[in-house]
C-alpha cells in the first residue's frame, strides 16, 4: 500500500487530503503520471516528497510498500 497526501491547491483538485493505493511496488513517475491524468494536474507546479524528504529526481525512484508520498505546491499568499 502506498499513501499519498495532497496539499494546497492540489488537495482542491483531488478533493481529498489523502488517498491510498494498493500497489506493493510502483515507480514514482508511474504514480505521478497516473495522478496527473486522473486529476488533471499537468498544469500545476508541485514538489514531491517521499517519506517526508523532498525528491529532487523523480525519474529513478521506486516506491515500496508503506511508502508515503506528498504532493506540495508552492504557496504564494502573504
Amino acid at each position: 500500500m502506498i499513501a499519498v497526501k495532497y496539499f494546497g491547491a492540489i488537495a482542491e483538485k483531488t478533493n481529498s487530503k489523502s488517498e491510498e493505493f494498493l500497489f506493493s511496488e510502483l515507480s514514482l513517475s508511474q504514480l505521478i503520471d497516473s495522478l496527473e491524468k486522473k486529476y488533471q494536474l499537468s498544469s500545476m507546479t508541485f514538489s514531491i516528497a517521499v517519506n517526508k524528504t523532498i525528491i529532487t529526481n523523480a525519474e529513478n525512484c521506486m516506491l515500496k510498500n508503506n511508502d508515503e508520498v506528498a504532493l506540495l505546491p508552492p504557496f504564494a499568499g502573504g
Binding site: F7, G8, A9, T45, S47, I54, T56, P73, P74, F75, A76, G77, G78
Partner: peptide, 26 residues
C-alpha cells in the same frame, strides 16, 4: 520564508549557513 494558501501555511529558513535554498524546494 513564509507563505499561505487558504487554510494552509508553509515556513522554512533557506540559505542558513549555506543550507538548502528555495530553489532546492521549488
Amino acid at each position: 520564508y513564509g507563505s499561505v494558501y487558504k487554510f494552509e501555511g508553509q515556513v522554512s529558513v533557506f540559505n542558513y549557513k549555506n543550507g538548502p535554498t528555495y530553489s532546492c524546494l521549488f
